[in-house]
Write a protein that binds this DNA or RNA. Structure first.
Lengths: 246, 246
DNA sequence: CGAATCATTGATCACAGTCAACTCTAGTGG
DNA sequence: CCACTAGAGTTGACTGTGATCAATGATTCG
């Protein structure tokens, strides 16, 4: 079992609403702009967390869209299988991040979402959210902003850069995402197998291995099995270039 | 260091008094679900088209976000310049498509938008649109759906495929987009220079040239200068694989 | 323990990038 | 009208990055 390097969720003294306060949509993903009454309404939409074991399926590709999810702990991956049956890892989802927004359009999930390790999510009915946001303009605005941000991020990934830089950029991006959620930005677990990282970055697993070796030799990281420690953030940032794309 | 490659903003050409019926947001991008009164309100937001000469700048990267744009004729490209001053073509925009949605989040345009040939757009104030959509829930829903669709499309592009397939997929995608807007799906102009296509697809211009030659030899396309004719759509579709990514 | 998966390391190869030369076209000015 | 230029596009020769193939080591689990 992959021992979590990360401590549990940073205790962000939250309201103890009836729903899942730790998944608070507001604090996790939709910052600012709501009064406390609106906030209560919002949080009442968030269901209690459910836990998924490693490799278990949260949503199946092409199944009908009903909810979005907020990751509460652990890690998920989005995987799509194309017409030729080729698997493609599209994304990793960390605690505090939303999953399923790209399903709104087609009303089907375009990819499967699978637990990478033991992980949990809160479910948010999209119907309810959509209905609520109709009566709270600023919530609607936040939703659009969030989508716009994801669109922007997704575009940034579009660039093609050498393999070493791509991997460095990936690690640096993970570091920043963990940091943003209150976890250590220097020590965290790469819970997914190398094969998934390789697939996600469009490289061979062998290449990942060689690049990790080089980074270790250069003293940039230390890596034991899946436990990563960033030893020299400045150098890593340098390797990543300005491509802060995750 | 990153000097803008392009000449100053072009002056707008023709003005009309009222809104631009040809750019009708509803017909172009946000299908269905509005009554005629709502439709009128929506269309009143759409300004009269402005024309831009080749290489002139519609929006400059990092400038403050105020409006989105609906392409009315011609073609635009989105180009971003990263920290190292490297240019990256992120997108091409055809008639009927919306530009600028990825600027909502940061309230700045993440890329410059430049006319590829003589082209025109209608401007839509995002403030006004946002305000209106607060009072028309179904409009708001459409906006979210549109963003979700763009997010999904953007993810599809993420996959990495061999160069010949990537180019075929690009042409096939263009064909479908032209078709969706009522243009010929077999004959259209690749208005942009080869260099831009190459940059967009992450290839060298020489590779583009060689692949075009091969496709011509194989009778898949005919290409005179920038005028493209797809001679065998089935073969093209085959080359593109199932990656209908644009 | 043995089976199975994951990770690492080495040897080889191919796809596409780079460098360089050349052609073709459009635009400019004498 | 032609000469000249500048840029786009094409073609050829060479090279390097990273994929593929293959074998070995490490770890977990039944």
């Amino acid at each position: 079992m992959s021992q979590q390097v990360n401590p549990p969720i940073a205790k962000a003294a939250h309201f103890q609403a009836s729903s899942c306060s730790q998944c608070s949509l507001s604090s996790l993903c939709l910052p600012l702009g709501l009064d406390s009454n609106e906030l209560d309404q919002l949080e009442s939409l968030v269901e209690a967390p459910k836990t998924y074991q490693e490799s278990s399926v949260l949503v199946r590709q092409n199944s009908p869209f009903s909810s979005i999810f907020a990751v509460r702990s652990g890690m998920f991956k989005s995987v799509s299988v194309d017409g030729q049956g080729v698997e493609q890892v599209l994304d990793f989802h960390l605690p505090g991040e939303l999953v399923g927004l790209d399903a709104i359009y087609a009303e089907r999930y375009p990819s499967s979402v699978i637990a990478v390790d033991t992980a949990s999510v809160c479910t948010i009915s999209y119907n309810a959210l959509s209905h609520l946001s109709a009566s709270i303009p600023s919530l609607q605005k936040q939703l659009v902003r969030l989508l716009s941000k994801k669109l922007h991020n997704s575009r940034e990934q579009h660039v093609d850069i050498p393999a070493d830089q791509r991997l460095a950029s990936f690690l640096f991006g993970l570091s920043k995402r963990f940091e943003a959620r209150g976890y250590s930005n220097t020590q965290f677990s790469l819970s997914m197998p190398r094969r998934d990282i390789a697939n996600y970055l469009h490289m061979a697993p062998e290449t990942i291995s060689r690049l990790f070796k080089k980074m270790r030799d250069d003293g940039v990281i230390s890596l034991d099995r899946r436990a990563l420690s960033i030893e020299n953030m400045d150098v890593l940032r340098g390797l990543a270039g300005c491509s802060s794309a995750l």
